[in-house]
């Protein structure tokens, strides 16, 4: 399953995204989160992504984050969350 066209992963969107991610986990064993369109991320969003990654691992679901824009990657790296997100 491919999740795409997400504009921002921020405090304003996390509730909606959580539902979206939960649905994805119920439906599919292989999920790709395409982040090419993501323009904004904050700590709330990063925390949600970490939870998403953890949940996928615990259920043996393959989850890949792809096309992460440079600016978003910078935000993630600033808070050293690349490892918990499995990006290293």
């Amino acid at each position: 399953m491919l999740i795409e066209n997400i504009k921002e992963i921020t405090i304003y969107e996390v509730q909606t995204l959580k539902t979206l991610f939960l649905d994805a986990i119920k439906e599919s064993k292989e999920i790709i989160l395409d982040m090419a369109t993501v323009g904004k991320i904050d700590m709330v969003g990063i925390q949600l992504l970490i939870s998403f990654v953890k949940t996928a691992q615990s259920k043996n679901i393959q989850l890949r984050l792809q096309n992460i824009p440079e600016s978003i990657l910078q935000q993630i790296e600033l808070s050293r969350c690349e490892t918990p997100l499995g990006l290293t």
Partner: peptide
Amino acid sequence: AITDNIPLLEELDPM
């Protein structure tokens, strides 16, 4: 980053 306390999605209150 200490992420151990972040629960799985089902248990997560994103706020």
